[in-house]
Amino acid sequence: MSEALASLLTALADDELILGHRHSEWTGFAPHIEEDVAFSSIAQDEIGHAAALYSLLAQRSGGDADGLALGRDAAAYRHAVLCERPNRDWAYTLARHWVYDTADAIRLEALHDTADEDLRALVTKMSREERYHLIHADAWIERVAAGPVEGRMKLEDGLKEAFEEALGLFEPIEHEEKAVHEGYLPLPSSELARRFRELAANKLDELGVQTEIYSRSDEAAEFVASSSGDLIASGDEHAESQPERARGLGGRSGHHSDEFQDLWDVMTSTYRNNPGATW
C-alpha cells in the first residue's frame, strides 16, 4: 500500500487509541455518576475507531489490528502528544476533549474527500459518533464557562494547557506531501490547522474565554520540516542551532513524552508478555 496512506491511517488510529485510553481511565471515576456512564461511551467510541482504522491498515499491509495497537515499540506511535497527556482533572479532560473533537471534526470533514474508498466509508461512520462527541464537549464547555467562577477558572487553565499542544494534532504527518499529492489527505495539515484556529477562536470568543489562550498557539502556528525531518517552529531565530520543539509537537514523528512511555508500558504489557496468545 501507499506509504503515505499507511502514515495517515497510523496517525489517525494512534490518536484515537491513545486518547480513548486516557478517556477510559475516567470510567468508574468521573466526578458525576451519569457523566461517568456517558464519558465511558466516548472512550469506547474512540477505541472502536482506532480498531477500525488499524483493521483497515492491517488489511492492506498485513498483520492484525491488535498487533498494530499493542505490539509496536513506543517510538512507532504517531499520535499527537496532546492525546497522551495524563487526565489531570476533569477540567483538563474536558478542555482536551473539546480541543480534540473540534480538531477531529475539521479533519474528518476534509477526509470525506479522501482518495481511498474504504477510508472514506469509515470516515462517514466515524463522523456520526464524532458529531455527538462534539455536541457533548460543547455542552460541557458552555455550561462550565457560564457557571461559577471556580469552574470557569479551572476550565481556562485546562484550555490553556490543551491549546498549547493542540497544533500537534496538525503537525504534518510523515510523507505528508505525498499524502496530499495522492489525494489521501485532501487538504494539507497547515490548512487544517488554519481552519481549526479560526473555529476555535470564534468559539472561545463566543464563550467569553480570554483570548490569550489561543494567541499562544498562533505564535507556534507555522511549521517547516528541518533537514533532519524534525519539525521546528518557523520564525524562531535559534531554530537552526537549537532545534527546540514547540510544546506538544513531535508526536507525528514518534517523539513522545515520558508520560507516554509510562502509558505504553502498561497498555502493552499483557500483550507483549504473552507472544502468540489469543485473548
Binding site: V37, Q44, I47, A51, A65, D66, L70, M267, A277
Partner: peptide, 24 residues
C-alpha cells in the same frame, strides 16, 4: 478499572470498559 489499561486486545479493552460502565 485498574485492569482496563492493560487489556490484551482492542476488543477486550472496549468490552471491559463497557462492562465497568454497566456497573457504574
Amino acid at each position: 478499572r485498574e485492569c482496563l489499561p492493560f487489556a490484551p486486545s482492542l476488543q477486550r479493552k472496549m468490552s471491559l470498559a463497557a462492562k465497568i460502565q454497566d456497573e457504574v
